[in-house]
Design a protein around this nucleic acid. Sequence first.
RNA 1: GCUCCCUUCGUCUAGAGGCCUAGGACACGGCCCUCUCAAGGCUGUAACACGAGUUCGAAUCUCGUAGGGAGCGCCA
Length: 462
Amino acid sequence: MTPLAVTRFAPSPTGSVHLGNARTAFFSYLWARKSGGRFILRIEDTDVERSELRFRDELLAELHWLGLDWDEGPDIGGPSAPYAQSERHGLYAELYARLEAQGVVYPCYCTPEELDLSRKLQRMAGRPPRYAGTCRSLSLAERHAHEARGRRPSLRFAVPCAGEVEFIDFVHGAQRFHMSDIGDFIVRREDGTASFFFCNAVDDAVMGVTHVLRGDDHLTNTPRQLMVLDALKLPRPGYGHVGLLVGADGAPLSKRHGSTSVQEFRQRGFLGAALLNHLFRLGHTGDVDGWLAPAEFPAHFRPEHLGKAPARFEESQLVHWQKETLGRMSVAEIGAWLDIEAGAPFAELVRHNVVLPRDAAPWIAVIKGELPPLGEDERRIIAAAGPGFFTAAAAALDEAGTDSKRLTKLLAERTGRKGADLYMPLRLALTGQTHGPELAPLLKLIGAETARRRFEFHAQNS
RNA sequence: GCUCCCUUCGUCUAGAGGCCUAGGACACGGCCCUCUCAAGGCUGUAACACGAGUUCGAAUCUCGUAGGGAGCGCCA
């Protein structure tokens, strides 16, 4: 059995959950569930500009919709409360004081404009754009001078100019970074709020997180966070960086690839279980190929099979899981999902002919609306059957009603047609399409009156 | 520019020196079933980025090349 894992998902409430984030959340959740550990939800809302309360509520709702739940979080509390970083200032203040006492951080009075310029200059000179160290060795007098001018400092971590940071990434293996490649980074912003490098790492450590699962884009950030943790003598969690989720063209998943957020897929009618089944196999291989019910996922999750290569998200693959999921739903569930008042017989009728709720629209038209004009091929089939066929069909309908078995039997006897020659013109006259659900229930729903009208139309017009 | 990461069928992946004439799933094609579609059964097409090296033997190890990506933010 996997050792007890405490994992977390730490989104910032700045919009709907991105598919890539949903995936790392799912994997983290699975790891905790599989090992019997805990899954923590923490809200990283230190960016006051972009964080919004409504996003936070939406986020929780989306996660629940997907089928995830957590053991500690802003809505249910827990031993490490509070779970929103905007409410954890007390802890951070204490830790900043410790860092200051150790002399591993220093106030930086550079303005964003100055920093921007410095970076540009370095770039032009063909050098990596790193903090130049301007404020690293300011005298007390110089600091006072800055303060006197009303400048509020940010707090920077003084990265040693020599040395290495090493860690074992549980998906990439051993990693080593030179400190000389890392510039002094900000741990506290000018407005007093905590920066990502600081609070993200610190909270993981303090909350007892043992396995941090995140996107590849954080791999080179990890040494910075490790330096903060080491300076504070806080325990290092294990880190694992999974390959990013990319679009069909291999570029990072973005708007131009279509839907990218959980919310968008939900609104289009994709099912949570379908999304989960797809995500489960993106950058990860479980020990089964087939569809899994949400409750079955943890048992089949294999953390050692998390992938390092970027995984392409293709909607056609999601469609497969959507069909699988649909196939396992009850008629009542399908009906609710379709969200139309056509009733159970209709849900039963179209369940194998729809992927998304909007696919049901043409069948609603078939049952209670007008048929679209026929295409070239369709007209040929109608013509081949001839007006007599439809006259006979109308007559048979009058005798058999919407009992399609009787109707086709009568029609077969009277026209000598059978098989496709019999059914195709019927289907076409009734639905206007060559494909679709079974004819018998279809006829029942269409009703004798409409069916008669459609037969008569072709009796006169073909 | 510097540092780091990645590269097996169209897609997701299995593969940790011989078990690989590279396996599975999805997608696609064919056949069967069937009024059609779907489902189901059978079946087919299809990949180790490239080049050196190590080795009796490399998809697997090493180096290089190419391509893709990330970080170098008072975003997370």
